[in-house]
Write a protein that binds this DNA or RNA. Sequence first.
DNA 1: GCATCGTATATAGCGTTGCTAGATTTTCTA
DNA 2: TAGAAAATCTAGCAACGCTATATACGATGC
Lengths: 206, 206
Amino acid sequence: MATKLAANRIAERKLRDRQARRAQIIIAARRIAELEGWSSVTLRRLSDEISYSQPVLYAHFGSRDGILAAVAVEGFRELGLALEKARKRVKRGGTVESVAAAYLGFAASSPALYEVMFSLSLTVPFDDPSTPPELRFAFSQLMELFQGQSSKPEVLSELFWASLHGIAELTRTKRFPPSRQKERVRALVELFNFPRDGTTQMVKVR
Amino acid sequence: MATKLAANRIAERKLRDRQARRAQIIIAARRIAELEGWSSVTLRRLSDEISYSQPVLYAHFGSRDGILAAVAVEGFRELGLALEKARKRVKRGGTVESVAAAYLGFAASSPALYEVMFSLSLTVPFDDPSTPPELRFAFSQLMELFQGQSSKPEVLSELFWASLHGIAELTRTKRFPPSRQKERVRALVELFNFPRDGTTQMVKVR
DNA sequence: GCATCGTATATAGCGTTGCTAGATTTTCTA
DNA sequence: TAGAAAATCTAGCAACGCTATATACGATGC
């Protein structure tokens, strides 16, 4: 019987080791990408960093894309937490502004991570039940902003997400001059702070 | 003297041939990408399609990225023309709606083309004088929409561009369910049809 | 018309990539 | 401690972007 217990502990230890190494790979990939770009994240380089041979990487993730996907999911996890924090620590003047700042701050501080979260052809249909919970959680934080304010919270939060993503992406790829970033965010917040739910109307005044 | 003229004509013909082949390469790359994705656009495949050897590709574009960049610029050219058309043929109810539809229609009908226009690390700072005119023209079409309406047309048009780009991108990568697309666009148009220029105000009604 | 020279094009190969089959070592079990 | 099983490595394949070198071609001068 003691052998059974020992076998259990061994299996547990193996699992721990396995997970630790998996995390190590993800961290290494992320670090290299952030420093030198994703094209520098090669399997040989990675296997070198973790001091294992290449096939070990395939035991954890089925392919190079599998590694990128794992990094992306980790990115969504962190983004979700950052948005939740920004939403709950209600800054006076509206949560929309706080969440927008948190989103763009995240994208700006980890450009390579943000890049792989979207440029990857993960093809996660979002609605699908197979969508990783990290993704759903991150989006749910955006949806919370418009709950009850509008007749269609999904539509408004999707549009909000799209706007944030567009700003993040065009900033990351240097299409937007950084000089006007503050004004862009201010305009964005103004637009989304007044959703048209039937009880709000825009009128001309003079 | 006749020899001089002949030499001229020969040089012209060579230039024409060269440009024709250049266009051929761009068209082939675009077609392959649209059918099988950009990873299938290899130099061997391209040289095969145009019935020339690989080094010829390097005589035209310095590298594979050079080919992608050329395709991207062509994409911006077409996008600019499409936006101009949508803006000038004023559909009743506002040009914003028309331009938005044209933009998203372009992105949806040529996803690979749209992808390379932005996912490429062209790193074109936009403001820079070295920015291709095709890019500037396309953006100018968006800026036209908000000229005079707002105190800061650049900010509003950049925000509009970002929103459109976000929708296009999240749709292309299957993050958005296509079912709500119409509503998303409607909400977008509503938001941007009422820029806050000091003569418009949002009020609660009941 | 022919030799010559320069340009255009092709051949062949280098180094690196993602990935994998088969050998080998390590670890557990009985 | 012997043998089974799992884990890991070695070595190599095909395909990639790219380029040095060789060859064929076309224009030019006598």
